[in-house]
């Protein structure tokens, strides 16, 4: 084992930042610049959404922040330490839950995957129960994930991430493959989880409503190669409500601004 603890390094002041980040990927037609000069700083406990049109490089940005993709230039700092591979205290939740869960493990054992070797049996069991309770999955604990609905499977992945007690949670379009009802209920569950754990969340999505509804800040990627085009503070009161919040004039104004920035992005 490399570490004995999964507690955040900077204990409570976790943040993720990058400056002048550049990413070039090898495509079929040679090298393609995906990101150029991305600058981002996320304070501890913040909920930041990254928006962009399809193919704008938002997933690439998240993968670089996650340490799954090497940057071609610039660097990512996690708690002040340069990221070189997935950093401790940072966990990624992928969009394709079906491929991200271990089909041969029960829900409970899927959630235990990241902590079972680092904690005692009773501590691990306690953490797993806690995480399952947060996403309201206790009753499905002994099922195989492939027996569950898409929304429930994604909750298993979220529970697995929060069982790690990460300081930063990176989410790549986590609700992108779910229907509207499930999506709304998972958004509210994620709000609750964040309120309880005060985890920093960086959330990639192409859904403007979702981004404004959930975030403290919405970041829009623009241009090709992409850079941060708009960074918008969202100061709506929490907890937010699916109907009431979305009827507030401030919400509508913010939504409008983000759509405008996206429209500009797609026009380029």
């Amino acid at each position: 084992m490399l570490e004995t603890s999964v507690e955040p390094v900077g204990s409570g002041r976790a943040s993720l930042e990058c400056d002048d980040l550049r990413v070039t990927l090898a495509g079929a037609a040679g090298e393609v610049d995906i990101l150029n000069g991305v600058r981002l700083s996320v304070a501890s406990g913040d909920f930041v959404s990254i928006l962009g049109v399809s193919g704008s490089g938002k997933t690439t940005l998240l993968r670089v922040l996650a340490g799954l993709q090497q940057a071609s230039g610039g660097q990512v700092l996690c708690n002040g330490i340069p990221v070189d591979g997935p950093p401790q205290g940072v966990v990624t939740v992928f969009q394709d839950y079906a491929h991200s869960l271990l089909p041969w493990r029960s829900v409970r054992r899927n959630v235990a995957l990241g902590i079972e070797d680092r904690l005692s049996k009773s501590e691990c069991a306690q953490r797993v129960d806690e995480a399952l309770e947060m996403v309201d999955l206790q009753r499905a604990a002994d099922e195989y994930p492939w027996r569950l609905s898409g929304g429930m499977q994604q909750r298993v992945q979220i529970a697995r991430a929060i069982a790690m007690r990460p300081s930063v949670l990176l989410m790549d379009e986590p609700f992108g493959a779910l229907d509207a009802m499930t999506k709304a209920s998972l958004q509210d569950q994620l709000q609750q989880v964040q309120a309880l754990t005060n985890t920093t969340i960086i959330f990639v999505t192409h859904d403007v409503e979702e981004a404004v509804y959930l975030s403290d800040r919405v970041v829009v990627l623009q241009g090709r190669p992409a850079a941060v085009g708009l960074s918008l503070e969202v100061e709506l009161e929490r907890p937010r409500r699916q109907v009431a919040t979305k009827e507030l004039p401030e919400y509508l104004k913010l939504r409008h601004e983000v759509y405008a920035a996206l429209g500009q992005a797609s026009a380029q």
Binding site: L68, V90, V91, D96, H99, L113
Partner: peptide
């Protein structure tokens, strides 16, 4: 590949 990424993210070694 995704499962191997999950392994990296959860730092399984």
């Amino acid at each position: 590949v995704r499962l191997l990424e999950v392994g990296r993210v959860l730092r399984l070694g």
